[in-house]
């Protein structure tokens, strides 16, 4: 409740902070904001060359399959990477002015969400011109994106606060994210795994998220209801847990940072 009140009262700060996040990241570079779209595409290009030819992967529409995996994944990792350090980066203001500290991680998550929604245009373009086409299922996009937003924000709440007290967090998380990338069916298909152990893959909420995006963009079908419910539960639990951690630790920010 306090959260909503704070956000409402400080909405102008939130807005200008989100703008700063989006503009500031690639400031000074020639392509500017465009980099946030070019980057994942370049990544896709690498995998699209490496995997079919060297690893002999034979997935239909592999390029589109990849893009629908990479773009949401980029949303996830950029928010985590930027969010983790956001409190530390803003040490200057934190020490000198009071404002609701949660604005910082929330702005990072919001800017990620906006970037992602714009990037979805790329997915749609590839679907149309790649011969897959689009269907009405696309209207479910905001729901899945929202779930991903809540999930990521919860993680960022906790990490940005913990990182102030234990600086190793950054390095540990960078490694874990790297591992999670391969534990999520982004480059490969889940059916690669024998059915008996496949469920482990699906315990990973990112698998559920990317699966849902693929269903609505590529396979033109409804995401599995059980999967969405599971995802929503995990997202909410992580969100409130993260917020709790943040609330517990935020009082020491000005002294510890």
């Amino acid at each position: 409740m306090q959260l909503i009140k704070n956000l409402y009262n400080y909405r102008e700060l939130l807005k200008s902070n989100v703008k700063k996040e989006i503009r500031g990241k690639y400031k000074g570079s020639f392509l500017g904001v465009l980099w946030s779209f070019v980057n994942p595409l370049l990544q896709v290009a690498v995998y699209a060359i490496v995997f079919p030819y060297i690893m002999r992967i034979q997935t239909d529409n592999y390029l589109i399959y990849l893009i629908i995996g990479i773009i949401p994944w980029t949303f996830f990792t950029t928010v985590i990477n930027q969010g983790m350090v956001t409190v530390r980066m803003n040490a200057g203001i934190i020490k000198k002015v009071y404002f609701p500290r949660e604005i910082l991680p929330i702005s990072v998550a919001f800017s990620g969400l906006i970037n992602f929604l714009i990037s979805c245009i790329i997915i749609v373009l590839f679907c149309i011109f790649g011969g897959v086409g689009i269907s009405w299922h696309i209207i479910l996009l905001p729901i899945i994106a929202l779930l991903q937003f809540i999930l990521t924000l919860g993680i960022v709440f906790a990490l940005s606060a913990i990182n102030i007290y234990i600086k190793d967090t950054e390095y540990i998380i960078t490694f874990l994210i790297n591992m999670l990338f391969y534990a999520t069916p982004i480059l490969y298909e889940a059916s690669l795994f024998p059915e008996k152990i496949r469920f482990i893959l699906y315990l990973n909420p990112m698998t559920q998220i990317i699966d849902a995006y693929r269903n609505i963009f590529l396979y033109h079908q409804l995401p599995s209801l059980a999967g969405i419910i599971y995802l929503a539960l995990i997202a909410l639990v992580l969100f409130f847990l993260g917020l709790l951690v943040f609330r517990k630790l935020e009082k020491g920010f000005a002294e510890e940072v």
Partner: peptide, 15 residues
């Protein structure tokens, strides 16, 4: 001015 005032919790129209 806008940024600083927003830290103090003002909205755009107030600023």
């Amino acid at each position: 001015i806008y940024f600083n005032a927003s830290i103090f919790g003002l909205t755009k129209s107030e600023i």
